[in-house]
Write a protein that binds this DNA or RNA. Structure first.
Length: 312
DNA sequence: AATCAACTCAACCGCAGCGGA
DNA sequence: GTCCGCTGCGGTTGAGTTGAT
């Protein structure tokens, strides 16, 4: 026995909504609310529409404070970063962009943003991106060791790049991707376009390490206190601190302000840990400079006996 | 001006998950 | 525990619009 249809399709109107229908629905919901039952709503309102259709129309178009039209660069960045982090979880992404609907964001991504990123990717001759980030499905349910790194590595102050890194902590099946200057168009990113991106999981002094960049290997770092010999824009060492829930630390930040590496596990799917962490850090911050060399704003700085962490 | 292709985006569809009976 | 109705979500569709020839 199949599921009963949500409405009698022969007797409901379909297709674009007329202004009169919009008016009726809006007036009713303004007055009485949805009543928690969309299926029954059309009858109450006096519309020959499916309840689902009413819900969609309300959520995507009629409800107050809906923003239509041009997405800002900041919104672009949020979408790209979250897409890289959690995939096509449009409702979650929408929840981070007040006034935007999941449908809007989905359409925007599919029709514009994805192409924009593809174009930038092609310009950078980076063949790692399309195979992973741009075609990503939502990740499997969050695994404790499944991680995503977001970073601003390149010298282009107006752009965001990110590294997406998923896989188990033992490094057995990592797939990594690196996009330089994904959101900038025409910016100077030549210094860090890294078509030879490599990643390697290693273990150093009991810490799980992930090393990425040109020819970098875990061996390029010689001590657990992050004093590394080949410190340049193309080589960063990330420490996965198992004792500190999902946090990654850019070890090179120990002695300069170059770059800023953020976190591990998905803050939305997991527990908003990074948000809380930044709050905590901000509360105990002694900031010495507000931006790094990429002009990314410093959110917080934390000094411990072992290291200094900067959050950009 | 006419035609066609590409693009946009509102709306639809089907499925999964949840909660109440 | 199972069934059923409902909601929410993500993928897809197709009518309308815009641009190119």
């Amino acid at each position: 026995m199949g599921r009963a249809p949500c409405c009698d399709k022969a007797n409901v109107k379909r297709g674009p909504w007329s202004p009169e229908e919009d008016e009726k629905l809006k007036n009713y919901i303004d007055k009485y609310g949805t009543g928690g039952n969309w299926i029954a709503l059309p009858q109450k309102v006096g519309l020959k529409r499916c309840g689902k259709s009413c819900r969609l129309r309300w959520l995507n178009y009629l409800r107050p404070n809906i923003k239509h039209g041009q997405f800002s660069e900041a919104e672009d960045r949020v979408i790209c970063n979250l897409f890289a982090t959690i995939g096509s979880r449009w409702s979650i992404i929408a929840s981070q962009l007040p006034g935007r609907t999941d449908n809007d964001i989905k359409n925007y991504w599919n029709t514009k943003l994805k192409k924009k990123m593809m174009a930038i990717h092609d310009n950078n001759n980076n063949n790692l991106l399309s195979s992973s980030i741009l075609q990503r499905k939502p990740p499997t349910p969050p695994h404790h060791e499944q991680v995503t790194l977001l970073s601003m590595l390149q010298n282009n102050p107006t752009s965001s790049s990110f590294i997406s890194h998923h896989g188990p902590a033992d490094g057995s099946s990592y797939s990594s991707s690196y996009s330089s200057s994904l959101l900038s168009s025409g910016g100077n990113n030549s210094s860090t376009s890294n078509s030879n991106f490599q990643g390697q999981e290693s273990n150093l002094m009991g810490h799980s390490m992930f090393v990425f960049g040109g020819e970098a290997t875990a061996n390029s770092c010689s001590s657990s206190d992050a004093s590394c010999s080949n410190n340049n824009n193309n080589n960063h060492v990330i420490e996965h601190d198992h004792h500190h829930h999902g946090t990654f630390v850019d070890l090179y930040n120990n002695n300069n302000n170059n770059g800023g590496i953020l976190w591990g596990e998905n803050p939305l799917v997991e527990d908003y840990g990074i948000v809380e962490e930044i709050k905590e850090l901000t509360a105990t911050t002694t900031t010495t400079s507000t931006t790094n060399c990429n002009n990314n704003f410093l959110l917080a700085e934390k000094k411990t006996d072992e290291r200094v962490m900067y959050y950009y």
